[in-house]
């Protein structure tokens, strides 16, 4: 899946303690959430989005400590 913010491949970022997460522009949110829902991935989305310099607002999809970054990345790659 293409990251509309960078025009590169949408990559799952991760933190050892916080777990994996995705920063995405909100126009991509529905498509990504639909793919995650199809695979029954647990996640939550920040309750707001931030726009810098009038660029499309960006929000964060969080997967928590139990999130599996490799599995999520595979789902995104397959959906793209």
């Amino acid at each position: 899946m293409i990251d509309e913010m960078t025009q590169g491949v949408l990559k799952v970022a991760t933190d050892e303690v916080a777990g994996p997460y995705l920063m995405v522009v909100i126009t991509q949110l529905d498509e990504i959430c639909a793919a995650l829902d199809r695979h029954k991935i647990r996640y939550w989305v920040d309750s707001d989005a931030i726009s810098i310099n009038n660029e499309p607002p960006v929000t964060v999809i969080n997967f928590g400590r139990a999130g599996d970054p490799a599995k999520i990345q595979a789902i995104l790659d397959e959906a793209g």
Binding site: A13, T14, D15, V17, A18, G19, Y21, V60, N62, G64
Partner: peptide, 11 residues
Amino acid sequence: FESRVQKYTTV
């Protein structure tokens, strides 16, 4: 910094 923010905010 980016991943630290993830920990700061969600943990």
